[in-house]
Design a protein around this nucleic acid. Structure first.
Length: 366
RNA sequence: GGGUCGGUGGCGGAGUGGUCAAUCGCAGCUGACUGUAAAUCAGCCGAUUUCGGUCUACGGGGGUUCGAAUCCCUCCCGGCCCA
C-alpha cells in the first residue's frame, strides 16, 4: 500500500503517502491550482512557501486549454512545470456550482452531466468514464471519481438520490480506471491513486450507506463531500468524525474543500489526512491575512481597513515569508489600494505559508 | 466694459416645477469569501435618530408658487467670445 502510518506517532494518522511524483507527509494541505496555476503565484513563489502537492481541476482544464493541449505538452506536470504530486478533482463540484445553483446551465442524469460552457455556451457532456479518461490524460498522481454534490439544504430524499448516483458513478469510474490502467499499460508503482467521495449531507445514515458502498468498490482514499457545516453554520463534528470511522485505516481520508485553519484542525483531530481549499489564496487576494496570534490560535486582518493606513509594523512578526520580511502593513495596504497585483501575490504567499506551517505543526504535535 | 454658457453632496457628473436627501461613476468605510463562473460580491456613504422619522441642503440673497436644485430678479465666482 502506498500510504503508511507512523506507528510511533502520537497522532496515529501521521504518516506518509507515496505517489509517482514523490512522497507526501500526512496530514497535508494542497493549494488549488484549479486551471493549472495558483492565481497570481509563480512556481518559485509556491516553492518558497513550501507548497508541494496541489489540486487541479478536470472540468476547468478540459474546457481550457483542453485535454489535447495538455497531452501535447507532455502532461499536466510538464505543462505547469510542477513536478510534485498533483491531484485532479473530477468536476463534480462544478456540477454543484453550475447546475444546482442555476438549472439553465445544464442537467444531471444518471448517465452523465450535460452542461453549457460558461465561456461560450457550447454544450458538453462529462460522464464518469470521461472524467476518468481526462484525468488519465492529464497524468495526475491522484484522481477523484465524478460525484453528485447536492447542497446540504436539499431534502433528505434529494440527497439520497445524489448518494445513489454518486455510488453508481463511483462504480463506473472504478471500472473505467481499471480499463485505462490496462489500456495504457501503467505499472502498479506508477498508477495514480483514485478517490471515492462520500456524500450524504448532514445525515449520518446516508453517509454510512455511501461510505460502505464505496468501500465495497474499493478506493485508495475516500473524500468527505459537500459542506461540513450545517444550515446554522455549525461544524458537523459528529458527521465528520463518524464518517472518518467508516473508512479503512490504511486508506486516505480527503476532506475536499476544507477549509479554515480551525476546520482543518478539527478534521485532523477527527482522523482526516488531506485538504484543499481556496481560502488562503482567495482571501489573500481579497486582502484578508492570516496572522499568528499569542492569545488565540490565530487571527485575521483585513489589510484594506483604514486603521492600517499608517501602521508601519510588520504584517505578522512571527512570519518569515517574503511579505513579512520586507514590508509594513501600511505598504501592503497601499499596494491593495493601488490595485497592484503584487498585493495579491504577496498576500496569497503569506496565507499559504501560514497553512503550510499549520500542517507542519499538525504533523509534529498532535 | 459687452455678450454668452455655467456654478449640484470629497471629486466627476445626471436631474430642469411635485414621486429629490437628489440617478450614476470614482474615491472613502465595513462585511463576506470553504473540492475557484471570485483581481469577486454585498452593504454604507449630508446631519441626527428610539431607524419610523426629524432637520439642514443643489454658489449668496430676495421673489413667484400650494410646492423650487429646477421659473424670475439681483449679487458673487468661473469658462469662452467680442472690445
Amino acid at each position: 500500500m502506498t500510504f503508511k502510518l507512523d506507528q510511533n506517532a502520537k497522532m496515529k494518522r501521521v504518516g506518509s503517502l507515496a505517489t509517482k511524483s514523490g512522497i507526501i507527509a500526512t496530514p497535508f494541505f494542497m493549494p488549488d491550482a484549479t486551471r493549472g496555476f495558483v492565481k497570481s503565484l509563480d512556481r518559485e513563489d509556491l516553492l518558497a512557501v513550501g507548497v508541494s502537492p496541489m489540486v487541479v481541476n478536470t472540468y476547468h482544464l478540459y474546457l481550457q486549454p483542453g485535454t489535447e493541449l495538455v497531452k501535447k505538452a507532455g502532461g499536466i506536470h510538464q505543462f505547469m512545470n510542477w513536478h510534485s504530486p498533483l491531484l485532479s478533482d473530477s468536476g463534480g463540484y462544478q456540477v454543484f456550482s453550475l447546475i444546482h445553483k442555476n438549472p439553465k446551465m445544464g442537467k444531471i442524469t444518471d448517465e452523465a452531466v450535460f452542461f453549457k460552457s460558461p465561456l461560450d455556451g457550447s454544450t458538453h457532456i462529462i460522464s464518469p468514464e470521461k472524467s476518468i479518461q481526462i484525468q488519465f490524460d492529464l497524468g495526475v498522481d491522484m484522481m477523484v471519481v465524478l460525484d453528485d454534490v447536492p447542497p446540504n439544504s436539499y431534502t433528505k430524499e434529494k440527497i439520497q438520490d445524489a448518494v445513489e448516483r454518486t455510488v453508481l458513478w463511483a462504480a463506473r469510474c472504478k471500472i473505467e480506471y481499471e480499463k485505462q490502467l490496462k489500456k495504457r499499460k501503467i505499472s502498479k508503482e506508477n498508477r495514480p491513486l483514485i478517490f471515492g467521495v462520500i456524500q450524504g449531507g448532514s445525515y449520518a445514515d446516508l453517509r454510512r450507506y455511501c461510505a460502505e458502498k464505496l468501500v465495497e468498490i474499493g478506493f485508495d482514499g475516500y473524500g468527505f463531500g459537500a459542506r461540513h457545516i450545517d444550515a446554522n453554520g455549525n461544524f458537523m463534528e459528529n458527521i465528520v468524525q463518524e464518517t472518518a470511522k467508516l473508512i479503512p485505516e490504511d486508506a486516505l481520508r480527503f476532506a475536499l474543500g476544507v477549509g479554515t485553519p480551525e476546520d482543518i484542525v478539527k478534521f485532523v483531530q477527527c482522523g482526516w489526512d488531506m485538504f484543499d481549499c481556496v481560502i488562503p489564496t482567495r482571501e489573500g487576494r481579497h486582502g484578508r491575512l492570516f496572522i499568528r496570534s499569542k492569545n488565540k490560535p490565530y487571527e485575521t486582518i483585513n489589510i484594506n481597513n483604514g486603521k492600517f493606513r499608517e501602521d508601519f509594523g510588520s504584517i505578522d512578526p512571527n512570519c518569515d515569508c517574503q511579505l513579512c520580511k520586507n514590508y509594513t502593513r501600511a505598504y501592503l495596504r497601499h499596494l491593495f489600494v493601488m490595485k497592484d497585483p503584487l498585493a495579491m501575490r504577496l498576500s496569497a504567499m503569506h496565507n499559504l505559508k501560514f497553512y503550510m506551517d499549520l500542517m507542519r505543526e499538525l504533523q509534529k504535535n498532535i
